[in-house]
């Protein structure tokens, strides 16, 4: 089954036109979540606040999974 991963890493959303093949939705979810975390590693140094989000669409175009990661920071005092 092909799944499409639309990702916004905080610098703007990118629509996935190609998709990636996974055997199950669970596998697509797990890899999607891991991808979000690894993109956060690359994106975090830019600023004190960032929200990364992910929509997974199936072949019919329906969003079957949605995830986000939010980073916030402050200097207290």
């Amino acid at each position: 089954m092909r799944y499409f991963f639309d990702i916004d890493d905080g610098d703007g959303a990118v629509t996935d036109d190609e998709g990636v093949h996974f055997r199950t939705l669970e596998e697509a979810q797990a890899i999607g979540a891991k991808t979000l975390a690894s993109l956060a590693l690359e994106a975090l140094p830019n600023g004190g606040h960032r929200r990364l989000s992910l929509d997974v669409r199936d072949e019919s175009g329906r969003v079957v999974y949605r995830a986000f990661l939010e980073f916030g920071s402050e200097r207290p005092g």
């Binding site: 991963f5 036109d17 991808t35 690894s38 993109l39």
Partner: peptide, 22 residues
């Protein structure tokens, strides 16, 4: 393939797909 690139680069196939498109 994207899966092979992922296994070589230590990235997920989804990350590979995204970077390839970029």
């Amino acid at each position: 393939t994207q899966t092979e690139l992922a296994d070589a680069l230590g990235m997920t196939a989804v990350h590979v797909n995204r970077v390839l498109q970029a």
